[in-house]
């Protein structure tokens, strides 16, 4: 079996937004849709003892997604490899999945023609992988800092398996039981 996951190394991310722009460019997203924002609370602490880190976001491709069972038309679905995606042909954009997602990683555009809006979300670049099975998602490919690592968790030799098995990773809102599949290596600061 294949289980796609992503590891995000926050120790390497510098908040350059390259992933955001690469994603929107190659997935041809409308302007107001951002699949993978790079969030930061800014420098925290009291000057000069401050620290800043970035949290690159994307759909968490949960093992137990909130957004799939709630979909009334079957547009929101999950592949066997864990990829959660929305079939634009089937989506009527009722936005119940948008409201169901605890991570806010889905939305429909406000720019597109009024009668052809559908819910969009990160697909781990499903289209690109369909064309070329070895393709990496654009956000991973474009990352100068190699802060995003994509791979198959079911393959014990994959880089992601090795990292998740050996480095302390965190997941977002794990307590909700969604079993998110994006693993973060936190940047805890504290340099010499």
């Amino acid at each position: 079996m294949t289980r796609y996951v992503m590891v995000i190394d926050q120790r390497r991310c510098i908040g350059c937004h390259s992933c955001t722009v690469a994603c929107r460019t190659w997935n041809k997203l409308p302007l107001d849709i951002v699949y993978n924002p790079v969030l930061s609370e800014g420098a925290q602490g009291e000057w000069p003892n401050v620290h800043k880190y970035w949290t690159p976001m994307l759909c968490q491709h949960c093992a137990n997604p909130e957004c799939v069972p709630c979909c009334p038309t079957g547009a929101s679905q999950q592949d066997a490899d864990g990829t959660v995606w929305v079939d634009p042909k089937k989506c009527m954009s009722c936005k119940v999945c948008v409201n169901a997602c605890p991570y806010g990683m889905r939305d429909a555009s406000h720019i597109e023609s009024r009668l052809h809006r559908f819910v969009r979300k990160c697909t781990f670049c499903r289209d690109a992988r369909e064309m070329d099975p070895s393709a990496q998602p654009y956000c991973v490919k474009t990352c100068h800092q190699k802060a995003r690592i994509f791979g198959d968790l079911d393959d014990p030799n994959s880089e992601v398996s090795k990292i998740i098995g050996s480095v302390r990773t965190e997941r977002l809102f794990e307590e909700l039981g969604t079993e998110p599949q994006i693993y973060y290596i936190p940047d805890l600061g504290g340099k010499a």
Binding site: W26, K28, E112, S113, H116, A128, E130, M131
Partner: peptide, 27 residues
């Protein structure tokens, strides 16, 4: 940036045409 095509006809309304935006570089 291409925003989804404006389509016409009943078929497009009930089954919207939203093809993959992927570019085939091996073509």
């Amino acid at each position: 940036m291409e925003i989804s095509k404006t389509s016409t006809g009943l078929k497009d309304i009930v089954c919207p045409d939203t093809e993959s935006t992927e570019v085939d570089i091996h073509a």
